[in-house]
Amino acid sequence: MAPITKTVTSLADGRELIYFDDADTTLTGERAVDARMLDPRPPTATMRQDVLTGDWISVAAARQNRVFLPPAHQDPLAPATPENPSEIPSNYDVAVFENRSPSFGPELGEADVAGLGFERTAPSYGRCEVVCFSPEHEGSFGTQTPSRARTVIEAWADRTAALSALPGIRQVFPFENRGQEIGVTLPHPHGQIYAYPYITPRTQRLMASVSELGPDMFERLLERERASERMLLSGEHWTAFVPFAARWPLEVHMLPHRHVPDFAATNDAEREELSHLYLELLRGIDAVYDTPTPYIAAWHQAPVNEMRDEIRMSLQLTSPRRAADRLKFLAGSEAAMGAWIGDVPPESSAELVREGIARARASQSPESVEESSQTIEGIA
């Protein structure tokens, strides 16, 4: 099979556009020029520091103008047509481009984020990219083929390496928001990648934990979870489980067995297995109830230049769905104090997800089940 291929071009306003073609692509490789007349890009937003916590808040007012749930014929992530001059001028398998209204960027630089003070500001340097998983109008990562999933993973690895090399970038974060309940404004199957000018608060707390428990914290964590009743799926290179102290009604983490700080550090075997195991996990999550599950799939990666030998990359997938027709909303204790109360015991959640995985497997064709079983070992 031919390798996944990459083509770099640009949009009419100078933003970078990158095509990634599947290994089994049916596309010719020809790319149209973006002939639109576009307004200049919005100026880089400004961050403000919260003196109570030290957190940096990017105030990106240009995001207020983004498209909200467009019909298929006006989908800005679909391949362009004469009637729909979208963001992507050609048909594609996977496409990545710079966000038109980013939370960080388009300017790059070293932001002064050290220390604490009153009314401190700094430019929201960085970069935000959109990753389109498919040219189809509706779907998610979990609705893709294994070949397409492998292409997206390759794009994540490529962009993690490229963004990590940009001036001033401290951390790179690929993620997928799925479902209107999460706040998704485009049904098109896509995710995003944020390249931050600081290390995020969540990762700073993780760094403190690793410093206290030791550099082998993730190795010990994985050993414990693999032996627990919260185990979901395991292959040669990856394991998925419901964590011991899950906050959300549905929460699944996935860790690589080998220590790798980010996607760029994974090898071909790890990426290949992940393309199957991750699909099985997401399809199982969708089969927990009769309708698709809203979620945030967050790929936590080590900072660009700190603790890369201690912090292991991980998936942390969370869903607010606590029953078929009920959602968990963050109210006083969680939203105001950060003091979480779990609605579902993690062991019960793990059983729900295992049942969903079993239902998803049963609905697959025999050929798909055989292909998956050759790549991963499911624990049900």
Rank of each mutant, 00 (worst) to 15 (best):
Q144C: 12
P123N: 11
F97C: 12
T81H: 14
V113L: 13
D93C: 12
G117L: 09
Y125P: 03
R159W: 06
E83M: 11
S164P: 03
F173R: 03
E98W: 10
P187A: 07
T160P: 00
G179C: 12
R48K: 13
V94D: 05
F133C: 07
V172W: 07
T81M: 10
F175S: 05
D50L: 08
N84R: 06
H190K: 07
G183E: 00
M47N: 09
Q144I: 07
F173D: 06
P82Q: 11
G179M: 10
P106K: 12
I153N: 06
T145A: 13
C128Y: 02
D93R: 13
S134N: 13
P174I: 03
P146C: 12
E87C: 06
F97R: 12
A161S: 11
Q171V: 04
A61F: 05
G168D: 01
D112W: 02
P82K: 14
A149F: 00
E138H: 06
T53I: 11
P85M: 14
L77D: 01
D93A: 13
L69H: 08
F141P: 02
A78H: 01
E98S: 15
L77E: 03
S164D: 06
H137P: 02
A149D: 00
T53V: 12
R178C: 04
P189V: 06
A62I: 06
I88W: 03
S58I: 01
M47F: 11
L163E: 07
D158H: 15
R170G: 01
Q74Y: 09
M47Q: 08
V59Q: 10
V59N: 06
Y92D: 11
A161L: 07
E129M: 13
H137K: 05
T143Y: 04
T145M: 11
R100D: 02
R66F: 08
P85H: 15
L52N: 03
H188S: 07
P76D: 05
A162T: 05
Y125I: 08
Q74I: 12
S101Y: 15
Y125L: 11
